[in-house]
């Protein structure tokens, strides 16, 4: 079947119109262009945690309704995330790399809040952000958190960015996660077992970043 010429001439503008509609209908977060830098952005004292309803088994449901937003001390939030994300019996270097990742993830989102179903919050208590359980802190993870509390892992211009991570696989460095610029949690334990320091672990997964101290923030 042959298509008349006038019809083929009309196709590119139609395609452009559809493309334009697609682009304009894509939601653009208001904070997409906002960058925050270490020094200008003060260390958070609190963070707003959306508590989602539990599923029938009694576990917070990542797709569940938001019940309320709890304002939590920032240090307590990080302390109550780390043992649920990293494994508390792992080596200190792994936990310290994890503590920095958990803190930088939380800090980034504290600077970039979202509004869902009428609730404005920074993070929720599920794997949508980081798994948070109140009062679940442990000695080993607390030690890792406070050892690294005064440290930030940022871009060379000191921009605060989200340190993301996934579980990964046991007994290997997880190169594919490095390629995706995400930290593999099992990989941190593997590298710690190989004698790597927390900085070496961070540098392995997130290239082109730097570890620096946070102005005015101590270890306690």
């Amino acid at each position: 079947m042959r298509i008349p010429l006038r019809h083929t001439l009309a196709l590119p503008p139609l395609f452009a119109l559809v493309l334009g509609l697609c682009i304009t209908s894509t939601p653009v977060p208001a904070h997409a262009q906002t960058a925050y830098y270490l020094g200008a952005a003060g260390f958070p004292s609190t963070i707003r945690v959306a508590i989602r309803e539990n599923n029938a088994s009694g576990e917070p449901d990542p797709r569940g309704r938001i019940i309320f937003v709890s304002t939590v001390n920032f240090d307590d939030y990080c302390r109550c995330v780390l043992p649920n994300e990293w494994y508390p019996a792992w080596r200190p270097a792994s936990l310290e790399a994890g503590a920095i990742a958990v803190k930088m993830f939380a800090w980034y989102h504290q600077l970039h809040p979202v509004t869902v179903d009428g609730f404005t919050f920074d993070v929720d208590n599920t794997v949508n952000f980081q798994t948070y359980r109140a009062e679940s802190y442990q000695d080993s993870t607390d030690q890792a958190y406070y050892t690294t509390r005064n440290l930030a892992y940022v871009k060379p211009d000191k921009e605060i960015f989200e340190l993301n991570y996934r579980a990964g696989y046991q007994n290997q460095p997880n190169w594919q996660y490095r390629n995706a610029q995400k930290m593999a949690q099992w990989g941190t334990e593997y590298l710690a077992e190989q004698g790597k320091t927390p900085l070496e672990i961070l540098e392995f997964y997130y290239t082109g970043r730097m570890l620096t101290s946070i102005p005015g923030v101590g270890r306690s």
Partner: peptide
């Protein structure tokens, strides 16, 4: 309650 060999666990 999660417990590991030689490790310290706290629970509430």
């Amino acid at each position: 309650v999660r417990v590991n060999e030689g490790a310290v666990t706290k629970t509430t």
